[in-house]
Design a protein around this nucleic acid. Sequence first.
DNA 1: ACAATATTCCAAAGAAGATTGGAAGATACT
DNA 2: AGTATCTTCCAATCTTCTTTGGAATATTGT
Lengths: 223, 223
Amino acid sequence: MDERTRKTNLYEQFARVGKALSNPARLELLDLLAQGERGVEDLAEAARMKVSNTSAQLRELARAGLVDARRDGVRVIYRLADEQVEEFVGQVQGFAASRLAEVEHAARDYLGDVAALDPVARDELARRLRDGRVLVLDVRPEAEYAAGHIPGAVNVPHDLLAARLTDLPAGTEIVAYCRGRYCVFAPDAVRLLRDHGFDARPLDGGLPEWRRSGLPVTAGAEA
Amino acid sequence: MDERTRKTNLYEQFARVGKALSNPARLELLDLLAQGERGVEDLAEAARMKVSNTSAQLRELARAGLVDARRDGVRVIYRLADEQVEEFVGQVQGFAASRLAEVEHAARDYLGDVAALDPVARDELARRLRDGRVLVLDVRPEAEYAAGHIPGAVNVPHDLLAARLTDLPAGTEIVAYCRGRYCVFAPDAVRLLRDHGFDARPLDGGLPEWRRSGLPVTAGAEA
DNA sequence: ACAATATTCCAAAGAAGATTGGAAGATACT
DNA sequence: AGTATCTTCCAATCTTCTTTGGAATATTGT
């Protein structure tokens, strides 16, 4: 094996990480896994992919060292290999957003104008959680809430929100959050709530950003 | 366009950055450009690629916002879009190295055991540049040296080093550096120098790492 | 205008990746 | 052992990416 081959081989190894991130389906899976570990079938449904394809893509991610798998009875649970992966994926997204106007455009197209909804800063919410009156609303699917959520947050999955509006207190300000900066659930929820006269704002960033900021996270059922 | 399409579109945009980094040839071009801006033909020669292919890959990098091009007379000069790109590429390499044992293996295979050569820390070299006696040797090609180098460094391109050994002072410790942590020039140079009785060590990291540490860089011909 | 040089465009061929349906493998429960 | 459930493997197809040689384009200098 000559020097040139060895050099190419080294770059090929580096490229494995890029390859892992080069496919939209895999990126979506990583975002889902940032909410918490999940089984293959479950992930497939959430990402609207076929199970066999989901399995193949997860396997790719595992080969790049981004995710781990463990068996739990009849199912295989995948999760991010460690916290660094989540951070890294966030950096990649931020980097992409910072230099491709198309990212901003696509995000706006998908999420609407989130800035116009006047997002609440994470540290502000952390303060108000202690002393202010505020209802924190987790609009992610129940399983993701159970895997970890902001302490005191109430879970009303986005698809059930319209039906449960009457359960919400009218006078209290509501802060809604979801999977992250590029998740629609919270912005959509805020718009729905405002249409019905509630005083609602989205949180800046979702649970992964909250966790990464070193703020507390509770697991389990709770409320 | 439905919600699902918009979501996929967003992830496709993110994936563009991953795609840009998913190919070994492009990663090598990025590493070369981290040394300084260069023309297409020049890059093609350095990476041992055909010009047409080099042009195509550079175009890909440009579409992902990683590099810029400007025309200088008859040639087109490419460069990294900004300092963030260099840092980002470094992070990707570091991330890959931290979780894929194969990267370590490939690096060792290509570079040999660099740690065994007892690399000099960058801040230590910075101190010794001021008060200690040390010869800093830049073993990169002349053009890269001209584009920017450590102040006071002497340029002896790696392929000319064997022929110029007699020009080097025997008593002084020599610190050699090159393109970065994954460049062979400096480790090879150190081994060659030691074989001929010189007291030589590699710098920890190359010029990009030096620059990123906020240490001074000089451009132009000098020595 | 013409020639020289450098780059990009283009078309074609080959390589690699994505996706699917169905078969095969694991595991748990009866 | 047999059945049900979940996951992976496999083979086939389709798409996308890579690479190449040559033609076309841009710029400079004569």
